[in-house]
Amino acid sequence: MYAAPDSRPRADTTTAIKLSGVVKHFGSLVAVDGLDLEVPTGTCFGLLGPNGAGKSTTMRMLTGQTIADAGSLSVLGHELPRESKLARARMGVCPQESNLDIDLSVRAVLEVFARLYRVAADDRDRAVAAALALAGLGERAEDRAAKLSGGMQRRLLIARALIHDPELVLLDEPTVGLDPQVRQELWSLIVALRERGATVLMSTHYIEEAERLTDHVAIMSKGRVVAEGSPRELIAHYAGVESHDVLGSPQELEALRGRALADGLATRASGPALTYLHAETADGSLPTGRRRAATLEDVFVHLTGEYVE
């Protein structure tokens, strides 16, 4: 329950985040290049893109820590950067790189952030207890954060972001560098968040993560959205039903790629293979290879290229 009349959404309550024509330069580098994005309220929205696509810059702009050079940004009805403080009070942020206060105990980390997020004094103990339970760190509450494993620290980061029961949660590469077990634990946490009705904006370059968790995906490349839709829609539109992998030497694959281009067939590089997209529509003329269901990874690599900066 948020008791702030001046911080309620003032305009469109169906849109949690809206970015129009957003541009951000760092010197001569264009990090975000005319970005348009709308995140509907109550959805889990994935920002998918290779390293350097502009995902983290976009996340930082949403918290007012990076100021756009051009364009307009609105979060929960608040115009940024002018009303950034009001927006931040209603969102929780889990950054890509840990910025945990490792000198503090687990409980103290949460207590400090309960205050920073202006949780009412009567609710603070309950909020801390709930966050500890959510992160499964009740038994480690008095330990210094520095003593936690990488997975536990990541869970604490997420619990810290949720201490004030935010309406919007920004997760910047939440599972990067974690082992598969911990990653799955965090996926369960994110699913629980969605079930509570929070809007989640999650950046990731793990395709499986986006495919499993998000309702809607925007694929970013070079600071722009190059495709947007549900994972299912994107696969159907850009990769079709089936993909066809053909193994070969680099020279053979290059020759096949040239021929496919001439025949108007969509392909994507796939390491030591060339993948034909929309394979179900080919007339049997494809080279010998392995047929499989099309995936979001096919779409991702097709749109963003095999090589990333």
Partner: peptide, 21 residues
């Protein structure tokens, strides 16, 4: 954590609540 009450911040001011945190 479904009924956590928060006090709204006031933009453009140095607030005692932030200093206390």
């Amino acid at each position: 954590m479904s009924t956590i009450t928060r006090t709204p911040p006031r933009p453009g001011r140095i607030e005692p609540a932030a200093l206390a945190a």
